[in-house]
């Protein structure tokens, strides 16, 4: 069952533009020059109920704009989207009461009042019956260990505590779709892990569909089997996380364990075709372009006393980095596959 359908979604912002300096500033008061900035361009994808999808892209790629359109905050310039059967930006109450948007950098709990009071407000706004409110609150309190926090004013909480309370507050109405925008930003590693396992657990228990943006690859690796990558507003990739690495990794790492490390440096450099080489106590490892992997491996096997040889994909971070470094409109921009 499809939970989210996005069809050629497009968003262009009109932004004021002026040059620096007093003259330009005064001029802009009289006549505002504006510029069209394309944030999201013809993006299409579908996400099923129960899926957790990582939504990746460098800063300014259009991730937040897309999430905001799906959460009903922004009207697109063109294109369609259906989430849980509704068009998000029509902001029907029946849709908004089944959806949650959580943003790591912004908090929605009221600053000056205790956490529990903010939850009561959510209860009124989302029309949660008393019995359900209590049982869900008990459950979330236990899972996220909120007991000691509920009666404190939000301003007295640490960043990690606040995020836990934000998440619990956003889930009281048991949303079926979750948009998580950098939910672990700024948190320490232990808290990141807590939040991660909680999101995974929520998805398992409720079958809610989750769309997650994060700059921490650990979040994505732990939660998402599928990723959607956008860059310069365009969909660059939609598929499995492992496929992403496979497709975009330009290099592989060959690690060989040697019987005895006799070979001298010049000899080794010749064998691996001059590619960057690292020596270790038991052998060497070398990063080679994908196309040369077989040739270099064969040469190493033939000419060195190899005990073991392993060919590995590079870590996901460095792959993502390569993808994000790609300039706009390069050929890989058209390499879009269905997921």
């Amino acid at each position: 069952m499809t939970a989210i359908t996005v069809d050629r979604l497009h968003k262009t912002y009109t932004v004021p533009e002026r040059e620096g300096g007093l003259r330009a500033a005064v001029g802009s008061l009289v006549r505002r020059r504006t510029r069209q900035v394309r944030a999201v361009a013809e993006v299409s994808f579908e996400i099923d109920h129960g899926e957790v999808v990582g939504f990746l892209g460098p800063n300014g790629a259009g991730k937040t704009t897309t999430l905001k359109m799906l959460a009903g905050l922004l009207h697109p310039t063109s294109g369609e989207a259906r989430v849980l059967g509704s068009t998000p930006w029509q902001r029907e109450r029946s849709y908004l009461s089944r959806m949650a948007l959580i943003m790591g950098q912004r908090n929605q709990l009221q600053w000056d009042i205790p956490v529990l009071d903010s939850y009561r407000l959510n209860q009124a706004v989302f029309r949660i019956p008393d019995a359900q409110f209590r049982s869900r609150l008990d459950e979330l309190t236990e899972l996220l260990e909120l007991q000691a926090l509920l009666r404190k004013p939000v301003r007295n909480l640490s960043l990690g505590e606040r995020m836990k309370c934000e998440i619990a507050g956003s889930l009281l109405h048991a949303p079926q779709v979750l948009f998580l925008d950098e939910p672990t930003i700024g948190l320490d590693v232990a808290m990141q892990r807590r939040i991660r396992s909680f999101v995974a657990d929520y998805n398992r228990r409720t079958g809610a569909c989750v769309m997650l943006t994060s700059h921490y690859m650990a979040d994505v690796e732990a939660l998402c089997r599928r990723v959607i990558v956008i860059h310069h507003g365009r969909l660059l990739f939609d598929g499995g996380l492992t496929d992403l690495v496979h497709r975009f990794a330009a290099e592989k790492t060959i690690t060989v364990e040697l019987e005895e490390s006799r070979a001298d440096d010049a000899d080794l450099a010749r064998l691996v075709g001059g590619h960057p080489l690292e020596r270790s106590a038991t052998g060497i490892s070398v990063r080679v372009p994908k196309a040369e992997t077989a040739r270099v491996a064969a040469r190493l096997l033939a000419e060195l006393p190899v005990v073991d040889l392993v060919v590995e994909e590079p870590p996901i971070e460095s792959v993502i980095e390569q993808v994000f470094d790609a300039p706009e409109e390069q050929p890989s921009g058209q390499e879009v596959t269905g997921g």
Partner: peptide, 11 residues
Amino acid sequence: GTFDFTLVKPA
């Protein structure tokens, strides 16, 4: 930007 949260509430 916290006004976003006002807009995503079903009220």
